[in-house]
Amino acid sequence: MKKEPMDRMDELEAQSIYIIREAFYHYKNLAILWSIGKDSTVLMWLVRKAFFGNVPFPALHIDTSYKFEKMYKFRDEYAKKWNIDLKVARNEKAIAEGMSNEKKFDCCNALKTEGLKMGIAKFGFEALILGIRRDEHGIRSKERTFSPRNEKFEWNYKDQPPELWNQYKNETEEKSHIRVHPLLHWTEVDIWYYIKREEIPITDLYFDQGDGKRFRSIGCEPCCGKIDSCASNIDDMIDELENTNTSERAGRAQDKEDATTMQKLRALGYM
């Protein structure tokens, strides 16, 4: 019998599949949150792997109505191809009232968060699988693999119980839901390596469309900014991410910070 060792990509993939199967075992009313972006599409791919080509629970798409046209097309095409039970949730009221990104926090809150709450309430999901990664910003840094939310969507991140090895929390209290994060240990470049290895279909919005710019992340059209990049295919992408090392990123971030600091100091009379 041939014995080939596992490489790092294999290990990440195996760990994610294990987590997805655990969630499926423990929670019967489960759904995957599909934002059509690269991370949640990789997640969808892993779900198909875990269940040998099937997606045995619904996919929830929170539609803010501001997504790129290409994303809707992609969604419908693959929902059909992969036989996905697609549920779309929209905060119709807010959208009708013309909620826009003038006040970004309010808009995200109304369309995404409230939309999600409505989705969960409508379909009664007790657990959600999401594509959150460890190297994303902000509050995500404290996530566990299986992370509970109470009915107000609040999360006690201050005193989380420990999560050891592969043993995850597997009960929910009534009226709360559990979030499952199979991609928690992946980084942005891991996602691209995997997309390349598996040849996962991805919308071409992520690549340079010919004007030396591309979208690094894809959400609602009005709020997504392009970054300078000539990456027009996956190899370029991986190259760019591996070699845009911390110092470049830090350099750009620091320049931005310095500019803000200068402004402040000027106003205060220190410059």
């Binding site: 902000g138 509050i139 991140y157 931005k256 600091t261």
Partner: peptide, 14 residues
């Protein structure tokens, strides 16, 4: 520069 970076732990930002 902003509230996302001002605190340790970063989870105080929200």
């Amino acid at each position: 520069p902003n509230l996302d970076k001002i605190a340790y732990p970063a989870s105080e930002a929200p």
